[in-house]
């Protein structure tokens, strides 16, 4: 029942709140701070779907994250919301998670989709921004919906407008853990 949390706390102080609220509910959790790690952008070398199937050839901190992710039942990405998307620290990791994607194509609801090689993975995103516009909120949620569709996984996106509001953060983590 491992849960991997990857967070970017460069624009908030959520790391401690998250650690506290998660430790109340489970101990099978690994937390990575994306903004402190060295993760390079995906090179699109396609080695992970060919010569080194399932392995990324970039030797950086992603080599620590991927072994945790493939053992996880749930992944939670925590990111500032920027231009209706995620911050670049989290985006680098999202792009690189493709290394453990299933390279085959499937059909779901009359559309082409891909899958993850990790079975029954649940994928969550928590976006943080104060005074978020409705438009930006929709874009962030829409991105997550597209992500779970193309990866054919279950999941949900959450919004936190006030990152020092411990109660609402705790509520989100409870919902994810008991899902």
């Amino acid at each position: 029942m491992l849960i991997t949390i990857i967070l970017d706390d460069s624009k908030n102080n959520l790391a401690d709140i998250i650690r506290e609220s998660i430790e109340k509910t489970t101990n099978e959790v690994v937390i990575f701070k994306a903004n402190d790690l060295n993760v390079e952008p995906c090179l699109a070398c396609s080695s992970c779907s060919g010569k080194t199937y399932g392995r990324c050839v970039l030797e950086d901190d992603m080599q620590k994250i991927l072994p945790q992710i493939v053992r996880s039942e749930k992944i939670i990405l925590v990111s500032p919301i920027i231009y209706g998307g995620v911050g670049f620290h989290i985006k680098k990791i999202m792009d690189r998670i493709s290394a453990v994607g299933d390279p085959r194509y499937y059909m779901k609801n009359v559309e082409l989709v891909k899958k993850m090689r990790i079975k029954n993975l649940k994928y969550y995103m928590i976006g943080i921004k104060e005074n978020l516009t409705f438009e930006e909120e929709l874009l962030f949620i829409k991105l997550h919906e597209e992500n779970i569709k193309i990866m054919d996984v279950e999941g949900k996106a959450f919004i936190v407008e006030n990152s020092s509001d411990n109660d609402s953060v705790e509520k989100i983590f409870k919902e994810i853990i008991y899902a």
Partner: peptide, 18 residues
């Protein structure tokens, strides 16, 4: 740019964010 996981690649995000 290409689509990586339903939007532009991380490196463009990094450029525009910074």
């Amino acid at each position: 740019g290409p689509t990586y996981i339903n939007t532009y690649p991380a490196r463009l995000f990094e450029l525009l964010e910074k």
